[in-house]
Amino acid sequence: MSGWEHVAQAIAAGDASRTADEVLRLDTAGCHETARRLPRHIGPARQATQEHFDRLRAQITTENEHHRKTFIDAEVARGLSEDEAFHRWWSTGSYRAHHHDVDWTMRDDWIAPMLVAGAGTLGGAAAVATWIFRRDFAGRNGDLHLEPLLRVIAARPPEWQADLAVRVAGRLRGTSRQRADGTVALALELLRRTGAPLPDHEPLVAAWASTPPDLDDDPLAEHLIPRLFEAERVGRLLRDDRGAEGQDGRRSWLHALRDLAAAGRIEREALVDGCVRRFLRGGSTTDLRFFVRLHDLLEPRPRRQARTCRAHPARPGRPCGRR
């Protein structure tokens, strides 16, 4: 079989890891053939996965019906009416014990390997960024499989990877869909791995703020913390942050920023001044709630006028208002 046929088989199996293995084995000719065939393979790959899903759903439905009928027939044989047997089927836990549901997200199993194949074979970083955000893939219900995707990207030249990181970050829109489908995680991880210059793109800041903070080890923190006070939607995004620890044990953004200042990794006054600048810009209560809580948590010293002057300096030749 040709290299493309091996890739197509991996896509048909819905196996992103196997697809990455096959892509990394391709020679130059195989990469070109795969890149040429991929766009036309979207329809067949989607259709094949849907047909597999439909067959599995029909099989599971038949099995569930068989278990239900067997149970009810046995209860009727013991003297119960069909209505009583059916009630027992539901009420005794027999339904839960014998009923199986099909995983509806498997209808998207073709998407992850298609993304991997495109990221590993399409020529330019611009083409790969367009491929990742292609509308055909936008409705997926599961996360991106980052490991195989990052593996094929890592095989590209460093300059190419940095270019892709900036392009993917620039396509973030701060939507809940992108947070849910793994696009945000991909953009942030590419920026961390490549060390590419961060684009001046406000949705990137909001996307970063939408993830659990790990500020001690995150190379993006130094660059993005100051932008938290400038980017729109950050305050609204963090409006419900009250400093409670998350279910995964990670700190809240409030405590993460406070602890960073307490450890001396960022000046407390810089965070306080950031809050003051945000207050001076104005906004709704919802937008400012997080910054008010952060300001209070930092317990600023009584140097209010000095901070206000730095945040909103007077015009040359005029006093700043300090007495």
Rank of each mutant, 00 (worst) to 15 (best):
H6L: 15
Q9V: 02
I11V: 08
A12T: 07
G14F: 14
T28R: 15
G30R: 00
I42C: 13
G43Y: 15
R46E: 12
T49C: 13
R55C: 04
L56W: 12
H67L: 00
K69I: 04
I72T: 04
E84A: 12
A85R: 10
W90A: 07
S91V: 03
Y95L: 00
R96K: 01
H100E: 15
H100L: 15
D103F: 01
T121P: 05
G123I: 04
W131G: 03
A138E: 11
N141Y: 03
L144T: 01
H145C: 12
H145N: 13
E159I: 12
E159T: 12
Q161C: 09
A162F: 07
T175Q: 09
T183D: 10
L186G: 10
E189T: 02
L190P: 01
T194M: 01
A196K: 10
L198N: 00
P199M: 02
E202G: 02
A206Q: 07
W208F: 08
D218F: 03
R227W: 09
L228N: 12
F229L: 01
A231K: 05
R233F: 05
V234T: 12
R258V: 15
L260V: 01
A261T: 03
A261Q: 06
R265P: 13
R265D: 15
R265V: 13
I266V: 13
L271V: 04
L271K: 03
G274I: 08
T286A: 12
P302V: 03
T308H: 07
T308I: 11
R310F: 09
A311R: 06
A311I: 05
R315C: 04
P316E: 10
R318C: 07
C320H: 15
C320V: 10
